[in-house]
C-alpha cells in the first residue's frame, strides 16, 4: 500500500461523500412534500430517453472514426444488437450475442 490505512480510509470517505452528493442534489433541491414545479416534472419525464441515448454514446466515447479499424467492431456489434433485439425482443440474447461478437471482433478479426 502506497499510503497509510488512515489516509486510504479518508480517501474512500471523500470519494464516497462526493459521489453521493452528486446523486442527492435533485432531492435536496426538491425535498419531499414540496411542490415540484411543472417544468421539473416535465424534465423528469423527458430526461430518461435522452439520458439513455447519451449513455449509448458515452459508452462509445473511446472509439476513433478516423483511424483503423474505424469503429468497425462497435458499428458491427451495435447493429447486430439492434437488429437482434427488434427481431427477438430478448434482452439476454441481444446483449450476450452482441458482447461475444464484439470480443471476437476486437480480439481476432481486427486485433
Amino acid at each position: 500500500m502506497p499510503l497509510s490505512v488512515g489516509h486510504s480510509l479518508l480517501i474512500i470517505a471523500v470519494v464516497s461523500v462526493t459521489t453521493f452528493a452528486t446523486r442527492a442534489i435533485p432531492f435536496l433541491l426538491f425535498p419531499k412534500g414540496k411542490e415540484i414545479p411543472p417544468l421539473i416534472q416535465y424534465l423528469g419525464k423527458a430526461l430518461p430517453p435522452a439520458v439513455i441515448g447519451m449513455l449509448v454514446i458515452y459508452c462509445l466515447k473511446g472509439v476513433n472514426l478516423l483511424t483503423y479499424p474505424y469503429a468497425a467492431p462497435e458499428i458491427i456489434a451495435g447493429t447486430v444488437v439492434v437488429i437482434l433485439h427488434i427481431w427477438k425482443r430478448n434482452n439476454l440474447l441481444s446483449i450476450g450475442v452482441g458482447t461475444v461478437l464484439y470480443m471476437v471482433l476486437i480480439q481476432q478479426v481486427f486485433g
Partner: peptide, 19 residues
C-alpha cells in the same frame, strides 16, 4: 476478457431500442 465491457454498451442499446 478484452472487450467484455461491451455488455454495458449493449445493455444501453437494448434499453434504447425498447424505448
Amino acid at each position: 476478457a478484452k472487450g467484455i465491457d461491451f455488455a454495458m454498451t449493449a445493455l444501453f442499446i437494448v434499453i434504447f431500442v425498447e424505448q
